[in-house]
Amino acid sequence: MATTILGVGAAVVAAMHLTWPEPQLPAMAYSVSAGEAGVSDLKPFSIDDVSGGAVELTPGSEGVRKVRLSNPNDVDIIVVKLSALPGTPVDSERNKVDGCPSGLLSVAPMDTPVLIPPAGEVQVEMVVQVAHDLPATCRDLVFPLTYSGHATRG
C-alpha cells in the first residue's frame, strides 16, 4: 500500500513583460489523507520556483518555469503530481486589472513522476502557455502561480 503526503505550496512567481518583482518566500502547508498509515512521520516536500526570470507575455507564446522539488525526509519519495494554477493578475502596484482573467495563462502539469532521494532535490520544468487573444492591457502584469503536488514513499 502506498502511503502519501501532499505538499502544497503557494509562491508568487511572476510572468511579466520586462520587469521582475522581488521574490517572496512561498507559504508552505501540507495535509495527509485520512486513514493512511505511516504517513505522519513524513515531512512535506517543498516546491520552489527557481526560474529567475519572467515569461514573455506575448499572445500565443510559451515559456518555461524551473521548479525545484526538495525532499527533507530520510527516505526516497516519488512526486507523482505537480501542477500550477495562475491567479488573478496584478499590475506593478499589485492592483487587479479589469479584463485580464487568470485563464489567459496556463501551466501544463508535470507529466512524469520524479524520484527524489533522501535529503535531495530535483529540478523540473513546467511549460507556461499564453493565450493567443491576450489583450494589450494584460502584457505587463504579474500572474501569481500557486503550485501544488502529491508524492508517495519511494
Rank of each mutant, 00 (worst) to 15 (best):
T3G: 04
I5S: 03
L6W: 14
G7A: 06
V8I: 08
V8F: 13
G9K: 03
A14Y: 08
A14K: 07
M16S: 13
H17W: 10
L18G: 13
T19W: 14
W20R: 11
P23E: 14
L25Y: 14
M28V: 14
A29K: 13
Y30S: 11
S31N: 09
V32M: 13
G35S: 07
E36T: 13
A37H: 13
G38W: 10
G38F: 01
V39E: 11
S40C: 05
K43V: 07
K43R: 15
K43Y: 15
F45G: 10
D48Y: 14
D49I: 00
V50H: 11
G52Y: 10
G52P: 02
G53V: 11
A54Y: 03
V55G: 01
L57C: 00
P59D: 03
P59V: 01
S61C: 03
V64L: 12
V64Y: 12
R65G: 00
L69K: 06
L69I: 08
N71D: 03
P72T: 02
D74R: 05
D76Y: 07
I78K: 14
V79A: 08
L82I: 06
L82A: 05
S83W: 05
S83Y: 06
P86C: 02
T88N: 07
T88L: 05
P89N: 10
D91C: 10
D91M: 11
R94A: 09
R94F: 13
N95I: 01
N95A: 11
V97M: 04
V97F: 12
V97S: 10
D98V: 07
D98S: 15
G99S: 04
G99L: 12
C100K: 05
C100E: 08
P101Q: 07
L104R: 02
L105F: 01
S106C: 02
V107Q: 04
V107K: 03
V107S: 00
P109F: 04
D111C: 06
T112S: 12
P113G: 05
A119S: 15
A119N: 14
A119L: 12
G120P: 05
V124L: 11
E125M: 09
E125D: 13
E125W: 12
E125I: 12
V128W: 01
Q129I: 02
A131N: 12
D133K: 08
P135S: 08
A136S: 09
T137A: 13
R139C: 01
L141V: 08
L141M: 09
V142R: 05
P144C: 08
P144M: 14
Y147Q: 01
G149R: 05
G149F: 04
G149P: 00
A151S: 04
T152F: 07
T152C: 03
R153T: 09
G154I: 00
